[in-house]
């Protein structure tokens, strides 16, 4: 780890001049593939399936961006990153966009010089415990041993929560989700804490998911979203409006099934027409094809389809839409207008 961080630092130093000013959009087009940073494996969000194909909610977003920019949803090079290597990988230009359930925070945005293009999952930090412990609230965890992934915001939230509630705990720092799972299942820690979505995803892979429960307390706000480097606003716009296109598509009822029909001729909804490029020049303003949103939506469906397919209630992970519903359904998803 030391070595990779150091190499990362050297790469930052060495490549930064070439990266900071250059247009990522042109680089991606010239290269013909999108380098997308994902996690090393979190069921539902980004994980390689039995055939080695990357699957998941974050992976679906990477494919949508690749489809919007290159017209080919499979032109993605997935780069697995850990909690510790992800920012170095992005800053050094090793990846073009990071879609790895990364929390949007002030210091990451301002001090680490990244641009968060939006939120694709509103999350919060929770606790998972074995039911046999008989704990029903996080406030009863005084003296517990807590497994925690290092290099994440969860580490700081946890310290804050226990300090504010004046209870003690023993942190067990762990590098990846897989190791955390091993220690938690062996009973080497009482509690596993990470984002509630991550807990649900991890629990789904257990042999007996019913023996474990997620406590009701959500101790933090974790808006997860894709991010790009500071200083390349054109590329930031491309990624931001791809995300907005997926969200808007759900709002207007554009799905992967009907997008081809709707895009073939102008409809009577001008917003849909502008989104799909049958009216106006929005695609050209981004430096993309007029039908970039059509490609993005056909890649894996709109936001709702991606959600249902990968992490929704009918999947083993079984997450409810909750805050991640459209604003029209009482959620927080709200795409700015396409005009």
């Amino acid at each position: 780890m030391k070595k990779s961080v150091f190499l990362g630092a050297l790469t930052v130093a060495g490549l930064a001049a070439g990266v900071a000013g250059a247009a990522t959009l042109d680089d991606v087009k010239a290269r013909g593939t999108l380098n997308c940073g994902v996690s090393t494996g979190l069921t539902g969000f980004s994980y390689p399936d039995a055939n080695g194909e990357w699957q998941g909610f974050d992976v679906g977003f990477c494919r949508a961006v690749a489809a919007a920019v290159l017209g080919d949803a499979s032109a993605v090079e997935f780069v697995p990153t850990t909690g510790k290597t992800r920012f170095t990988a992005l800053a050094s230009g090793e990846i073009d966009v990071l879609a790895r359930n990364t929390t949007w925070t002030f210091s990451r945005d301002v001090d680490l010089k990244f641009t968060f293009v939006g939120v694709n999952y509103y999350d919060g930090q929770g606790f998972m415990i074995p039911k046999e412990l008989g704990v029903s609230s996080a406030k009863e965890l005084d003296g517990a041993t807590v497994c925690i992934q290092t290099g994440t915001t969860t580490e700081l939230n946890l310290a804050d929560y226990f300090r504010v509630n004046n209870i003690s705990y023993e942190p067990v720092p762990i590098e990846t989700n897989a190791e955390a799972q091993q220690q938690f299942l062996a009973g080497a820690c009482d509690v596993y804490t990470t984002d509630a979505s991550g807990l649900a995803a991890t629990r789904a892979t257990f042999e007996n998911p019913g023996d474990y429960a997620v406590l009701p307390e959500i101790i933090s706000k974790e808006p997860l979203g894709p991010l790009v480097r500071h200083g390349d606003d054109e590329w930031g716009d491309v990624v931001r409006w791809t995300l907005n296109a997926l969200i808007a598509a759900e709002e207007y009822g554009v799905t992967s099934a009907n997008v081809a029909d709707l895009a073939s001729a102008p409809t009577d909804n001008p917003e849909v027409n502008r989104l799909l490029g049958t009216e106006g020049e929005l695609g050209a303003m981004l430096g993309l094809e007029a039908d970039f949103a059509v490609d993005a939506i056909s890649a894996g469906g709109n936001y709702g389809e991606l959600f249902e397919k990968n992490i929704g209630e009918n999947t083993p992970i079984g997450l409810a839409r909750g805050l991640n519903a459209q604003y029209t359904d009482g959620g927080l998803l709200y795409s700015p207008p396409f005009r």
Binding site: K2, V5, A9, K84, F87, R108, T150, G151, V172, P173
Partner: peptide, 27 residues
Amino acid sequence: IAVGYMDITGTLMGITLNQTGRELETV
């Protein structure tokens, strides 16, 4: 860090590096 032992690599060059983003200085 492979076993989560918090030595100088785990604290200064691990968590501190991550939370502050100061790769060059910490390393």
